[in-house]
Design a protein around this nucleic acid. Structure first.
Length: 208
DNA sequence: ACATTAAGTGATT
DNA sequence: AATCACTTAATGT
């Protein structure tokens, strides 16, 4: 296995760490739509995303899931880190939004490397920081924005992680991610269309 | 041609 | 913003 860790992390990595990662990490391929982490599950590995993207959601009693954020290349899930370090169970639900490739690092390694390698510590702390900021953004948008703003944010994030301006998605699916009803989404999308922001088709939304 | 699923809309709370 | 009830449009069999 030979992965460009410098590119993945965004800064130089110690040679010894790169070697350790290459020998201990399991490289895993996950198909689109596959369930990766379930609430209540205890975690033995921390994932680092090599390719693709992952949807992280907070489950609710009524069976719905509220979208928290997406994970992209070079990122790891801070909720997972939390669980690993506290030896706790998952509070979140994660599925692969596209087919993805991951490095799975055993959690005991993760703690060991925190002490040994500066670049690893930096990677973990950076990850924590950026996940935390995204979480704050999500909280802001839920608490202080109305559904129209949340929807626009949702669409642009979706377009960003998929690298496309055409989203193959139904109004119902959007409604589930935002924990609202399909009717509301349909109305707001219709409004956006009349404002020339998007074009609507069956199972497809074209961003302009 | 018929059934099913996605999307659009007015009225009500 | 949510829900109901209904319509219309697109797709599958």
């Amino acid at each position: 296995m030979d992965i460009a860790l410098n590119t993945l992390f965004g800064f130089p990595v110690e040679k010894e760490l790169a070697e350790e990662i290459n020998t201990t990490a399991k490289r895993v391929q996950v198909e689109q739509g596959e369930e990766m982490i379930r609430p209540g599950q205890s975690l033995k590995y921390m994932p680092i995303l090599i390719r693709g993207n992952i949807k992280v959601m907070r489950p609710h009693e009524n069976g719905g899931h509220l979208l928290l954020y997406h994970l992209e290349q070079g990122q790891t899930c801070s909720m997972t880190l939390n669980c690993c370090m506290a030896d706790a169970q998952s509070e979140i639900y994660a599925i692969a939004e596209t087919s993805t490739e991951l490095l799975m690092i055993p959690i005991h390694k993760m703690e060991e490397w925190m002490k040994k390698y500066h670049s690893w510590r930096k990677f973990i702390l950076n990850s924590y920081h950026s996940r935390m900021m995204e979480m704050l953004e999500s909280i802001d948008s839920i608490a202080f924005s109305h559904m129209d703003a949340r929807l626009e944010r949702y669409l642009s994030e979706k377009a960003h992680v998929q690298g496309k301006a055409q989203l193959s998605i139904t109004h119902q699916e959007i409604a589930e991610d935002l924990n609202t009803s399909r009717v509301v989404i349909s109305r707001l999308l219709k409004k956006m269309e009349s404002e020339q922001k998007i074009q609507l088709h069956r199972n497809l939304i074209q961003l302009l």
